[in-house]
Design a protein around this nucleic acid. Structure first.
Lengths: 153, 153
DNA sequence: TATTGTTATACTCTATAACTATA
DNA sequence: TATAGTTATAGAGTATAACAATA
């Protein structure tokens, strides 16, 4: 026949991500953060003086959505925005000391969360899981029908 | 040896779920549905006369949130709600013909999505992925380590 | 009093469209 | 005209608290 199909892997993935994601959100919230803030902080640590275009692409959100989060983060003293003298349209985003502090708190929370996830897993199993998830991501990203493109220039 | 830690598996899972989940939402939307509607329809097919308490638990949302979705679904003619004569507090939720029709449309969309995800995967790999995700879910559900954030501030 | 569900309200994340300011 | 970012607005999904109906 056509396909044995098995159980829907998309449903399993969604269910897992929901449960695990909520646990992570709770962990981050208890440490004074949230998922988008955490993703923004990670990007800023990797790329200390990012412009907002790069940031939005890295986090996977639209520019206006990023502005929304950065406004809150700036109001909370976590980041500063200043214009690039070389091109005054560009706003360079940088972490403040408070931002650094929050980053470290959230990093600890994330490590705790990850330890919980890893419980009972061998390193080989984690590597396998990571590899399989990567391929699944490729399956929806390498798509010809849905321009899901996160980054382009 | 303290933990070598590896790459954060939680981040990988979240990233994958975000990309894959958005692709799925797009697919469902094109077929006239959404993620919560799809989950509710699945539950109703499995348990044709569910009460709302069961439904909310199955979908993983609060009762008030379910009411919100059911109101819209009822207005769209997808479901009916009637009181259980044996216990008039209970509202039995049932699919209408239109609800059945939408279910089949979304099921087709979900199958298409799943085929896309399965591309390049062997059955053994899918089984492995399913098993690993299940164990990861268990790790956050069997919540002995982190009941809830202690106080902070 | 306890249980089932609804209403009222609000919050978070996200998005699009129109706008400002630079280039 | 084109690009970087902001403002205004909106919508989806979720939640808590107070409430009504029923047991």
């Amino acid at each position: 026949m056509t396909k044995p199909a098995g159980r829907p892997i998309g449903l399993t993935l969604a269910r897992t991500a929901k449960v695990v994601g909520r646990a992570f959100e709770d962990t981050l919230a208890a440490a004074g953060g949230s998922t988008p803030i955490w993703l923004i902080l990670i990007s800023l640590k990797k790329q200390p003086t990012s412009n907002q275009r790069e940031l939005a692409a890295a986090v996977g959100i639209q520019g206006a959505t990023l502005t929304h989060h950065l406004n809150a983060m700036e109001a909370d003293g976590l980041i500063t925005r200043r214009r690039d003298p070389a091109n005054r349209r560009v706003h360079q985003v940088r972490l403040t000391e408070q931002g650094e502090t929050l980053f470290h708190r959230l990093a600890t929370a994330a490590r705790t969360h990850d330890q919980r996830l890893r419980t009972g897993f061998g390193e080989d199993e984690l590597a396998t899981l990571e590899r399989l998830l990567g391929r699944m991501r490729t399956n929806v990203a390498d798509d010809d029908t849905l321009p899901e493109g996160p980054l382009e220039h």
